[in-house]
Design a protein around this nucleic acid. Structure first.
Lengths: 170, 170
DNA sequence: AGCATATAGTCTGTCCATCAGACCAGATGA
DNA sequence: TCATCTGGTCTGATGGACAGACTATATGCT
C-alpha cells in the first residue's frame, strides 16, 4: 500500500498503477530488474538506496506480485509476468527522458536481438514488431556518462547484454 | 528538483524522467491536464490534493517547462510541447493499470477521432497510426466506477470529449 | 571442520515532505 | 458596492526517507 496515503478515491487506472509503482525508488528497482540485477546487495550498490527502504520496497513488490523472491539464504528477485508487462511503460518513460535531457544522444541503445534497433515506440526498425524484453539487447549510447558510477554493478551493466539476463557480478 | 533528494548519481534516462515527474501527484496532475483540467481549483477539487502541495507541484512543472501558466488573475495551466510528448508513457502506464486491476474492463476508452479504438500500444485499430493526444476522444469504459467521486470536475470528465479540450465546468 | 568475510537484512534518531485546516489578498459577479 | 470565489500562503502534527550502527545467517577459504 505504497505512497503514504493511497489514491483510493481516484477512479483512474493511472492512480492504480502509481499505487504499485509510484513510490520513490520503485521504478528504478524494476528497471534494474529488467537490466539483470537480482540480488539485494546489487540493487543497493547500484542505486545508493538505504537498506531499510530497499527492503521495504522489495517486500512490497513481492507482495504485489511484480517480483518473486526465491532461494533461502541469499534470495534472488525476479520479475513476474505482471512485472514484465510493465516494460512498454518503462521504455516509454526512458525514451521521454532521453528526448528531454540529451536530445539525439540516448544513454542506452536498445536492439531487437539479431534484427534492428528499437524506435521510441519500442518497435524494431527492421521488422516492425515490438519485441518482448527478453529479446532486447542493451548497449551504451552516445549520451552515457560512465564517470558517474564505478560500482561493480554499473561496470557490469555497461557490457552489451540481453535484458533479464543475470549480470555477471562476483 | 523534485523527490526530496534527486537521482543525480544515476546515469539513466529513467532517473532523469522521474526527477521531473516522479513525485507524488505529479503524474496525476499531468493526466488531468491531458483530460482538459486547466485551473488550480479544478485540479484541487478533482484530486483532493493539499493546496500547498498543488501549488508547489504546479510551480515545479512550469519551471521544468512541462506546463505553462497564463492569465493574470486566475491563471490557466496548459501542457507545453514537452508535456504533450509525455503522452505515450502516460498512456502505457494507464493501460498497464487497467490490465492489472480490472482485466478486460478498462475504466476509460480511447478512440482515434472519427476512426477507431486505440490498442494497448496507443495505435488505432482502424488506421494503424498512433494519434496525437489532440486527436483522441475519451469516454467511460466498463470498469468505470462513477460512485467514487461526484465533484463537478469528475462529473464533467465523464462526458465523452477530446483530450486537451478544456472541460466545461462553471 | 573452523574461521573470516559477505550478505541480507533490522533498528535508531534526525530530518524533510505531506497533511488538514486556518488564514488572506485580489479577482469576479450580482 | 458588496459578497463570494479563486488562488494561493502559513501553521502544527504526522509519517516516510535518510545515514549509520548493529546482527544473524550464508558462503568461501584453508
Amino acid at each position: 500500500m505504497p505512497l503514504g496515503t493511497d489514491y483510493a478515491r481516484q477512479d483512474c487506472s493511472l492512480a492504480r498503477s502509481l499505487e504499485l509503482v509510484g513510490e520513490r525508488w520503485t521504478l528504478l528497482l524494476l528497471r534494474d530488474a529488467f537490466l539483470g540485477v537480482r540480488r539485494f546487495s546489487d540493487f543497493q550498490a547500484h542505486l545508493d538506496i538505504s537498506r531499510a527502504v530497499l527492503s521495504s520496497r522489495l517486500d512490497a513488490l513481492v507482495a504485489d506480485g511484480l517480483l518473486t523472491r526465491s532461494g533461502e539464504g541469499h534470495p534472488t528477485y525476479e520479475l513476474t509476468e505482471e512485472g514484465l508487462d510493465l516494460w512498454p511503460a518503462l521504455y516509454a518513460l526512458v525514451q521521454w527522458g532521453d528526448r528531454r535531457t540529451t536530445p539525439g544522444r540516448p544513454r542506452r541503445l536498445y536492439q531487437h536481438v539479431g534484427c534492428g534497433d528499437l524506435g521510441p515506440d519500442g518497435r524494431c526498425h527492421a521488422c516492425g514488431l515490438t519485441p518482448a524484453p527478453g529479446d532486447v539487447e542493451v548497449r551504451q549510447g552516445p549520451g552515457a556518462d560512465p564517470s558517474l558510477r564505478d560500482d561493480p554493478v554499473s561496470v557490469a551493466l555497461r557490457q552489451p547484454h540481453r535484458l533479464l539476463q543475470p549480470i555477471p557480478v562476483r
